[in-house]
């Protein structure tokens, strides 16, 4: 992988993460305020979860490049940033599991009150943890910027 492809994909990864988290706010709000489940509530949950999944897969694909091209230098320059990056990866998996779980449970059982509440909790937790993860990603990107 070239440095240009890596840089392009890592920016796409960050943009997609933010867009997906913003999309997920719609089902969180509408599931709380409305009695029924509208077409757009289900669609934004699906799209947001698909975006979070795509973000995670891009990050997983980029990880070996980070490990080879950025991590050794970053370990020398700013070891705390590499630790923060690893924590971010752990949290990203948690966010992906919660977002995909929230959207799937809404589709498969959203008309049942207990499943609807489960879906709401999963989506809410995914957005809260996702915002923390995105902040960590921004911090690491700023620390690693001169590396490649």
């Amino acid at each position: 992988m070239t440095a240009e492809i890596f840089a392009l994909c890592s920016r796409l990864h960050g943009l997609l993460a933010v867009l997906s988290l913003v999309l997920l706010i719609h089902p969180i709000v509408t599931l709380r305020l409305r009695r029924g489940i509208s077409v757009w509530t289900a669609r934004t949950a699906d799209l947001g979860a698909a975006g979070v999944l795509a973000t995670f897969l891009i990050g997983w694909w980029l990880y070996p490049g980070y490990r080879q091209g950025i991590k050794p230098r970053l370990l020398f320059d700013d070891p705390s940033a590499t630790a923060l990056f690893e924590s971010k990866e752990h949290l990203a998996l948690l966010v992906m599991a919660l977002a995909v779980g929230g959207a799937l449970s809404l589709r498969l059982g959203g008309h049942h009150p207990a499943v609807r509440r489960l879906s709401w909790i999963m989506l809410l937790c995914s957005v809260v943890v996702g915002a923390v993860t995105a902040g960590m990603g921004l911090w690491v990107a700023a620390a690693a910027h001169p590396a490649w």
Partner: peptide, 11 residues
């Protein structure tokens, strides 16, 4: 309306 299931087992 969207296709939405109602099975607690699925949840």
């Amino acid at each position: 309306g969207p296709w939405i299931g109602q099975s607690p087992r699925a949840g």
